[in-house]
């Protein structure tokens, strides 16, 4: 019996440590209700086509307001999320949006120091190893996925906040080019809701 309890306690401790990779350690007591409410605010953005289209359930990127596959093109994620063979994302997508409807959108790459490289495009899906699927996920499923080390590729709270605050691909959602809608919140509201979720303990909706 004692052995069983010890193993159980170890597993709980390991589990808590793993979850701490996204959930912030704080001396303040967690406010689960506030965390869940904040996540539900951010969830509106996570589920918008500007985000879902590059976080698909399948192996191919989506496009448009109704998240359809790229017509005709047999696009595939590839190991690094950059596409394969002749159909790599940046073969068409450049470092900025092209002017006009139905033209390829684009975003700039980030240099090692964090500065933007306006001559090199950044356009990709998450890697095959960590696909970070948003499409079709309920709020509870998405929240748990973001916190699950086996699915989030070692994401920490700081990584997540950095991604949603500064990644040119995320920022692009608020500058999506002609004919594409923006997410329902302002970018600063979105970032604040992600921070509020984490600051309040990162509890997931039920």
């Amino acid at each position: 019996m004692r052995t069983t309890i010890s193993i159980g306690a170890c597993l709980l401790a390991i589990s808590a440590a793993l979850y701490a990779t996204v959930r912030r350690v704080s001396s303040e007591p967690n406010d689960d209700a506030a965390a869940r409410a904040a996540f539900m605010v951010a969830y509106q953005v996570f589920m918008h086509p500007r985000c879902v289209n590059c976080h698909p359930a399948g192996d191919s990127p989506l496009r448009g307001e109704d998240s359809q596959p790229h017509t005709g093109l047999r696009l595939r994620r590839g190991p690094d999320g950059q596409g394969v063979f002749t159909l790599k994302c940046t073969n068409c997508h450049q470092s900025q949006n092209h002017v006009g409807p139905h033209m390829p959108p684009g975003a700039p790459n980030v240099l090692a120091g964090g500065a933007l490289d306006s001559t090199t495009p950044r356009w990709h899906l998450p890697s095959a190893k960590t696909p970070m699927i948003f499409q079709g996920r309920s709020a509870a499923q998405l929240c748990r996925q973001l916190e699950d080390p086996s699915q989030n590729g070692g994401l920490t709270a700081e990584h997540l906040i950095h991604h949603v605050s500064t990644d040119p691909l995320v920022l692009w959602a608020w500058n999506p080019g002609e004919g594409r809608t923006r997410p329902p919140l302002r970018h600063d509201e979105f970032v604040a809701s992600v921070k509020a979720w984490l600051d309040n303990g990162g509890a997931c909706p039920k």
């Binding site: 002749t86 940046t90 073969n91 068409c92 450049q94 470092s95 092209h98 033209m103 390829p104 495009p121």
Partner: peptide, 13 residues
């Protein structure tokens, strides 16, 4: 070595 679409590839790249 990548098969880019030259009609949308700016010279800056």
């Amino acid at each position: 070595g990548d098969a880019v679409r030259s009609c949308v590839t700016p010279m800056s790249r």
